[in-house]
Amino acid sequence: MSTTVTERPSRTTLFDGLGRYIPIGVTVALLIVMYLGGIAAFPRFSSPQVIASLFIDNAALLIIAVGMTFVILSGGIDLSVGSMMAFSTMSIAALTVDLGVPAEVAVAAVLAFGTLSGLFTGAVIHYFNVQPFIATLAGLFLYRGLTLQLSDHDVSMRDIAFFDWGMLRMDFAGGQRDGGFSLPNISFIALAVVIVAFIVLHYTRFGRGVYAVGGSESSALLMGLPVARTKVGVYAVSGFCAALGGVVAAYYTKSANPLAGVGLELDAIAAVVIGGTILTGGTGFVLGTVAGVMVMGLLTTLIAFQGDLSSWWARIVVGVLLLAFILLQRFLSRSGEKRRT
């Protein structure tokens, strides 16, 4: 070939590529502003444990939001995660406390069930072309109902030694007393999930397939990608993460509450969107979701430090943030469309 055609991404189109990073950049900036604001306003806010606590109190939410990230990236939505989490915690309680099943077996069974039910939901969505919203709505009702049937009151798991492991802490930089911080094992579980999810999404065919399907399902199909496997897979991942969230909740509270995680699906979706993932799929990062969860956690922390402000401000602020991010995404995608035509 004698001549070669070259095209450099022009400046305006380069912006289009960078446009992907604008929402997450905004989130990180927001996080920094909130943190610095907290330090300026409250002396005790500068303790590293404030940040560490975000990963303790929100461990279950983080895991579930990571699962939700897979689903939303693929262009779907999963409303069943909150109920699934509660059902998992309650099942573990029922299996171990009432039936005396070894805790290891109970945990494994619950994780397997979460994955399988996700597979089933995904299959219904893909093969029967049922809207994800409706198919997972059935899950939302079903698992909540099953949870309530197992028990309509709190079940304590305090007597089972297995569940002590979760909150065993590891000290860093001398631990809390010496100005450092400490993290329990559940935080490490959550962080491990984030790392695995990051690797899967960015470095495996399945992960790249999730982005491709979210970008354009019909294109992915014509490119010969395994669309069915990918679409069913993301719901399995989300189901697994929801069940794991239930296990972490069991560690965290050592009890099972039948009404745990009501509305958690909304928090997870909000965290994903605030983390810069576009709800129509195809664009976003799992690390953005971590930032999203941190923003929501920090918001609650700030309100707790403030003392006068009431907890409902958190919801309102999350709503405002959602609005801002959705309009930002809308604006970015519109200007992108304009440039291309």
Binding site: R20, R205, R208, G209, Y211, A212, G215, S216, M223
Partner: peptide
């Protein structure tokens, strides 16, 4: 899928 890189689009799958 224009959200992925050129290389990924060429070799996806």
């Amino acid at each position: 899928t224009d959200n992925l890189s050129v290389a990924e689009n060429l070799l996806a799958g």
